[in-house]
Simulated assay, not measured.
Amino acid sequence: MSKSFESYQKRKLISSYFSVVLSIGLVLFLLGILGLLVLNTKKMADHFKEQITISLFLKDSAKEVEIDQLQKSLAMAEYTKAATYVSKEEAAEQHSKEIGENFIEFLGYNPLKNSIDVQLKADFVSLEKIEEIAAELSKKNYVDEVSYDKPLVGLLSENVKKISFWILIASAIFTFIAVLLINSSIRLSIYSKRFIIKTMQMVGATKTFIRRPFIWTNIKLGMLGSLLALLALAGVLYYINGSFPELNLFKDTSMLIILFVAVFVLGVLISFISTFFATQRFLNLRTDELYY
């Protein structure tokens, strides 16, 4: 009978520890994902900004040497990520594929112009800077027109600011929720041992002596939960980097190391603080208050 009871108590204890580790790991994993999102907000915004292209349509009278010089000067410009020359023949072929028919046969001539597509660096993707660049390029006498999607640029800049703001707000709120959830899990774990705490106190054990094993146990559980979260976070990070290699998530390894260390330390720190105050609460209760 006693062996059966001991076995039951052991299973109950393991189940309690497992639930604490799992809850800590899950909360820290979600917090790590959010931290990853915060760290890469600018990188993702830059990726979308750098899809913006300015098209320089050239006059038919433009000489080959002028086009070549213009392309080289654009490639070396501080605002350029890439400059690609597109001949009118290439443009016609691409347009025919898009519409599904050969429009040149219908019209009898190619109305398109030679062009240079300039892919901008993220820091220069704003309405003011693009307008300055477009105005400067329009001054060249062999440039017929400078075109870009003005509404898209304005919408992108506005949405990037909004998304960055709300991600920061969400991070603050979720961090607070994470602390509350981990704290609740640890408090429930210690609540089940409140009579043991009071018994130890009644036989003369000091508060420090009573707290020490609880704190050390929950710090170890916090470490396990943190490691579980970091393993899951590393798996997600590897998957995202494989699916979207253009984000180059592993480039800034120092920031990733800081994030992983922060998640681990946060798990240990919250476990320590929550255990300290939870045990302190039950140590300060009267015996008859333990039943409520």
Rank of each mutant, 00 (worst) to 15 (best):
K193S: 12
L180F: 15
M202V: 06
L168I: 12
K198T: 00
I197H: 11
I163D: 13
T206P: 00
W166H: 09
T175E: 01
T206R: 10
S192N: 08
K161H: 08
M202P: 01
I167H: 03
N183M: 09
I167E: 07
L155M: 08
V153H: 05
L155W: 08
F195Y: 15
N183Q: 05
S185N: 07
T175M: 12
T206I: 01
F195E: 03
I173A: 14
A172S: 13
E158D: 13
F176T: 12
S192F: 10
I190D: 04
R211E: 09
R194K: 14
S171Y: 07
I197C: 03
L152A: 11
L155P: 01
K161D: 11
N183K: 06
I190P: 03
F165K: 13
I167T: 15
F195G: 08
Q201S: 14
A170C: 05
G204E: 09
I196L: 15
R194G: 01
F209M: 09
F165Q: 12
I163E: 10
R187E: 09
N183A: 06
I196A: 11
K162L: 14
K198F: 02
V203C: 01
F165N: 03
M202C: 00
A178I: 09
I197R: 09
A178D: 06
A205I: 01
I177Y: 02
T199H: 07
F209R: 09
T206W: 02
G204F: 04
L188D: 03
K207P: 12
I169H: 06
A178F: 04
I196M: 12
I163P: 12
I182W: 04
G154Q: 03
F195A: 07
N159C: 02
S164A: 15
I210C: 05
Y191K: 08
L181V: 14
S189P: 13
G154V: 00
E158S: 14
T208R: 12
E158P: 00
G204R: 05
L181W: 05
M200L: 15
L168D: 15
T199W: 02
S164V: 08
G204N: 05
I173T: 10
A170H: 03
V153A: 04
R187G: 09
F195R: 13
S171E: 10
L168H: 09
E158V: 00
I167L: 14
I177R: 04
A170S: 14
